[in-house]
Simulated assay, not measured.
Amino acid sequence: MALKRLENLSEARNLDVPSARLLSADHEEILAGHTTDIYFVKTLELLRASGRASTPVVAEIFCRREGVFAGTPDLLRLLGDAPLRVEALPEGSPFRPKEVLARIEGSYEVFGMYETVILGMLASSSGWATAASLCVEAARGKPVLCFGARHVHPAVAPVMERAALVAGCSGASCILGARMAGRQPQGTIPHAAILIVGDTVELARLYDDYLPEGEARTILVDTFKDEAEEALRVARSLKGRLAGIRLDTPGERGGVTPSLVEEIRARLDLEGFPDVAIFVSGGLDPDRIALLSQVGADGFGVGSYIAHATPRDMTMDLKVIDGHPVAKRGRIPGRIANERLVLLRG
C-alpha cells in the first residue's frame, strides 16, 4: 500500500519510524516526501493558507560545474502522472557550467515540496556519470566496467552503476544496476574463490567446466604466484578457451604497474596466446587507465573512482511565476534558452 504524501508540519513531526528497519529510505518513503527538507513542507502549508499553493510556475535546474547529465528516470518516476511539463538534457549529455539542465512547468503545489529529492537524484547520478565518462574517455574505446557497488551504500549502488552505464561504461557488476539498464551483470571471480580452492589453475578448470558457455573465461592471476607465471599456467591449461586474465595486484605489492602489463603481454604473445586479453582493476583513475592502456591493457574495472565521485551540486530556481519573469538577486529573470533540452512529458 502506497504511503500518503506529507502535506503539513504536523504530519512530518509525527512521522512514525519503525526501529527494526534499514536506515535507508525505501521507494514509498521517497515518493511520499519523507526525504525532503522540512522547510519545503512549511512552504507548502504557508502557501495553502494564503491561497497561493497552486500558482503556476516555471522552475529551472542548473549546475555551476561542467559534467555529464544523468538521473531523469528517477525524476519522472518521482513526478508520477502529475500534470507537469518536463524538459531535460538527454541522459549522457555533457553540460556546461550554469547551463539549464531541466525545466519543470506547472502548479507549485504539485512538485515544489520535492525540490530536495529532485536535486539529490540529479546531483548524485550526474556526479557518478561524470567520473565514469572520464574513465571511458581515457580508455579510448577499450571496455570499462563499473565495480563500484562495494564502495557505496547498497541502497544507491544500482543508481550509481546505471549512471556509469549511461556515461559509456561497457558493463557493471551490480546485478540490479545492470538489469535496470537492460544489461547482464558482468564480472570475473573474487580472490576468495581461488583462496578456497587453493590453486589458480584448478579454479580456472572449475570455472571452465561448470559455468555457462556464454560466460567469458577471465581469471585472476595475482593470488598465489608471480602474475606472469600464473597467466601462462592458466593460458596453457585452458588453451583457446581463456578469454583473458585479470590483474588486481594490491598496493602492498606495488599495484598493477605499466612494466608488469608490458611483461605479461610479451610473454603471452611469445607463447602463442595473443588473443588472451589483459583486464586490469584496483585503484584505477583516468590517468592510470590511459597509462596502462598504452602498454597493452585491454580492459578496466573501476570502482572507487566512480563511486567516490563528487556529486554535481544542482540548484533549482523559480524563473516564472503566474506568467511573470522573476528571479532572486544575482540570477536572470525568466526562462534561459537551451535548444538542447528535449521534452520528456507535457
Rank of each mutant, 00 (worst) to 15 (best):
D248N: 13
H151E: 15
R96K: 15
R329E: 06
D322G: 15
I278Q: 09
K239I: 03
M121N: 04
N14A: 12
T315K: 04
V117D: 12
A59F: 09
D269E: 14
Y39R: 10
V326L: 10
A32N: 06
V136L: 07
V342M: 02
T36W: 03
P97E: 00
E87V: 01
E105C: 10
E7K: 13
R183D: 05
A307M: 07
T223M: 08
S19N: 12
V159L: 12
K225D: 05
C135F: 11
S19A: 15
E262P: 03
S24K: 04
I264G: 01
R13Y: 12
H34M: 14
I61T: 01
G283C: 13
E213G: 07
T130C: 03
E339T: 06
G299Q: 06
A163T: 09
A157Q: 07
S124A: 14
L145C: 06
V41Y: 03
L6C: 05
P212V: 15
S24V: 03
R162W: 02
A167C: 05
A25T: 00
R331E: 13
A235E: 02
A172P: 02
F224H: 08
E230N: 15
M160K: 02
A149Y: 08
R217A: 07
R312W: 04
G272M: 08
L79P: 03
S304L: 04
L3V: 02
E29D: 01
G346M: 04
G120W: 02
D313M: 13
I289D: 06
E11L: 04
K98M: 15
G33D: 02
F62H: 14
L119G: 12
A164C: 07
F279V: 07
M314H: 07
V326M: 11
G198K: 00
G272K: 01
A164H: 05
R265G: 01
A102V: 09
A102H: 06
G251W: 12
R236D: 11
A138P: 02
E29T: 00
A2Y: 07
A123G: 11
V326S: 11
E227K: 14
L270R: 12
A172I: 03
K4R: 14
R5W: 05
E213M: 06
Q186T: 12
P325Q: 06
I332A: 11
A235M: 00
G67T: 04
A228R: 03
G299C: 02
V100N: 02
V86N: 09
R52I: 01
E60S: 15
F40M: 14
P56N: 03
E230Q: 15
L22A: 05
A167Y: 10
I194E: 06
P325S: 08
V261Y: 04
V152E: 08
I336V: 15
H27G: 09
L22K: 09
V57A: 10
